[in-house]
């Protein structure tokens, strides 16, 4: 592991952390356009985070240190995930430290900390949010794992850079199993990022919310980190989707500046499209009842398993 590799790795993380709120802003702008509303500024998420960072933190009377630690743990997990996912280049030294299974584990760690922190407040809403989040999580997590397994059976590896690299080199090969995996992945993405068919990111209606109920007690810098981590999570999921299903344009080696610029441009283009598509999905769908959410995710899980089966049954 040489210095240049560490630098590119650091660069990748910084790009992800810096660009994540922008991506969220873009999704919000697209949503507003599609719904005939006046769009908020593209940089609104940055402003929100900046405003929150400047405020005085308010903590509930008897929360434990776990509650104060959780935002950092959540943010740290998401930033680490950004270091593992090959968004810009395949040759990331840190990506070798953890594979797709560890990545799923990392998301689970963030979720468990969020749920524990929510239970720590001891309010009805906190515990309700924690329960619902864990309920979605226990179905979304295996579905995501199955999606990764479908891809890793094709590549013969669970390392994300190797998977992306394999898919890149077979430009013309069509894998039917990936069609199943892609739909399952999309459903997991929507559920995990509290997007519309499952949760509404802009609601504060207590009875239906999931993610917002969990973070109700957070304020100021803690809330800023949680919001940032949520944006980063969406960004990470988008990049995971690219690595699995649209790996073209990810540089093999990031050493030279023109290659780096190319990779950045391709990533930006993909994110623009993905953001618009996400906004479209959120606009044409209605939020489902909370009791239907497990069914939605069970469907995603079954599709992912089916993808795995198709991979083995249909001689591709």
């Amino acid at each position: 592991m040489n210095a240049a590799a560490v630098l590119t790795q650091l660069f990748a993380v910084i790009v992800a952390v810096a660009a994540a709120p922008l991506f969220l802003g873009w999704v919000n702008v697209c949503r507003a356009w599609l719904q005939n509303r006046r769009a908020p500024p593209l940089a609104q998420p940055y402003r929100t985070i900046g405003k929150l960072l400047h405020k005085e933190a308010v903590l509930a009377h008897d929360v434990s240190p776990l509650f104060r630690f959780a935002p950092y743990a959540i943010f740290g997990s998401m930033a680490t995930a950004a270091a593992i996912i090959p968004a810009l280049g395949l040759d990331l030294p840190f990506a070798r430290a953890a594979d797709a299974i560890a990545l799923v584990g990392l998301f689970a760690t963030a979720r468990v900390f969020a749920a524990l922190a929510a239970m720590d407040t001891g309010t009805a809403f906190g515990t309700l949010g924690a329960r619902r989040e864990m309920m979605l999580g226990f179905l979304a997590e295996p579905a995501l794992l199955m999606v990764f397994f479908t891809a890793s059976l094709i590549a013969g590896s669970t390392e994300l850079p190797v998977i992306a690299g394999t898919h890149q080199s077979h430009t013309l090969a069509v894998h039917p199993s990936l069609a199943f995996a892609a739909i399952a992945f999309l459903m997991v993405l929507l559920a995990e990022n509290a997007r519309i068919p499952v949760d509404n990111p802009s609601t504060h209606l207590e009875l239906t919310m999931i993610h917002e109920a969990m973070v109700l007690e957070y304020s100021a810098r803690h809330l800023a980190l949680i919001e940032w981590a949520a944006a980063l999570k969406l960004f990470n999921y988008a990049c995971m989707g690219f690595a699995l299903f649209l790996p073209w344009g990810v540089a093999v080696d990031l050493a030279s500046p023109p290659v780096l610029a190319g990779a950045l441009a391709v990533l930006a283009a993909k994110l623009l499209l993905a953001g618009a598509a996400l906004a479209l999905i959120e606009t044409v769908n209605a939020k489902i009842r909370i009791f239907r959410a497990p069914e939605f995710l069970a469907f995603a899980f079954m599709l992912a398993v089916l993808g795995l089966l198709v991979r083995l049954l249909v001689q591709e």
Binding site: A173, V174, P176, A179, F180, L303, L306, V310
Partner: peptide, 18 residues
Amino acid sequence: LSGQYIHLFASVVLLLSF
């Protein structure tokens, strides 16, 4: 490639059944 596309559409038919 044509065989792969047939498989793809076959899988889509299955997917739609589900």
